[in-house]
């Protein structure tokens, strides 16, 4: 590396530190991190950045500092609109500032910017003594589901795949079924929440200000059809069975485990299984059957 390019490197590291400094440009310049790149008194800023007749060098640098947080906060707000609604803009802004210190963007795409937001909320959650589910858990669950929506929306889907047709399924002899395994669609997600966050999110995204729901264990099956994310609330029984199938158990073994779970009376089992499988197939939860 030549002397000159080392200079550029120093300027860039210094400028990035200063414009991303959470408490502002002046504190940024004074910070140890910035000083290690370019040792500088605030009053000497003109030796790095020139002033214009209208703005001081510090004001000019400040435009980039403001833009950094404003732009990224706007992106996070667009990815997490329901979380903004639940937390309020001010609290969301404050959390985002902290989040951006902890998880600054390291990717060329903004799609990755908010990836760790649910995890960050979890990490910053104050510890509760009794381990009780509370308001913070509700917020974490909203963030988690909104992130899943983003990933399913832009991730791999089944729009270009041939999904399992009724003919294929009908051609499978009943006695073969127990030995088969089902391959889930790549956009399929099975989730369990402590709150009905899916309803809250839909409501908030429609521009309403929904009230905070009561705690209620909620199971969701999420997938994507025609490039739109679809979510449906399912029963605990469906959740149990789908999660066994998702784990790769043979259909027969999954059903046996379900029967043993005591979640359903044996005489109800047959009717329900039939209906569920028909519905799951129609919803495109599975893309293939395999017998190995």
């Amino acid at each position: 590396m030549s002397d000159e390019s080392r200079n550029l490197d120093r300027i860039q590291r210094w400028m990035q530190t200063v414009i991303c400094w959470p408490s502002g440009v002046e504190a940024g310049i004074a910070s140890e991190e910035a000083q290690s790149k370019i040792p500088l008194q605030s009053s000497e800023l003109d030796t790095v950045i020139t002033a214009s007749s209208q703005l001081t060098s510090q004001e000019r640098l400040g435009i980039y500092a403001n833009a950094y947080y404003a732009r990224l906060l706007e992106c996070l707000s667009e990815e997490y609109p329901a979380l903004v609604c639940a937390m309020g803009k001010t609290a969301f802004g404050a959390f985002s500032m902290e989040f951006l210190q902890e998880y600054p963007s390291t990717s060329y795409t903004l799609c990755e910017l908010g990836a760790h937001f649910p995890q960050f909320l979890k990490e910053t959650k104050p510890a509760t003594e009794d381990g009780e589910v509370n308001w913070t858990d509700f917020l974490i669950e909203i963030a988690w589901l909104e992130r899943v929506y983003s990933e399913v929306f832009d991730g791999p889907g089944i729009e270009r795949e041939t999904v399992l047709s009724a003919e294929t399924l009908n051609s499978i002899a009943p006695e073969v079924w127990p030995e088969l395994r089902l391959k889930m669609a790549p956009c399929f997600r099975l989730l369990e929440f402590q709150f009905p966050v899916h309803e809250y999110i839909s409501n908030a995204r429609q521009g309403n200000s929904p009230t905070i729901p009561e705690q209620q264990i909620t199971y969701l099956a999420i997938t994507r059809r025609n490039f739109i994310v679809r979510r449906e609330s399912i029963s605990q029984s469906e959740y149990f069975l789908l999660s066994k199938l998702e784990q790769g158990l043979k259909v027969g073994d999954a059903i046996t485990q379900f029967a043993e779970s005591g979640l359903m009376e044996p005489d109800e089992l047959d009717v329900n299984l039939h209906q569920w499988f028909r519905h799951w197939m129609a919803s495109g939860f599975f893309i293939d059957v395999c017998d190995s």
Partner: peptide, 10 residues
């Protein structure tokens, strides 16, 4: 301003 694409959910 950056353009971020928000997910469409039904």
């Amino acid at each position: 301003p950056a353009s971020f694409i928000t997910a469409e959910v039904e």
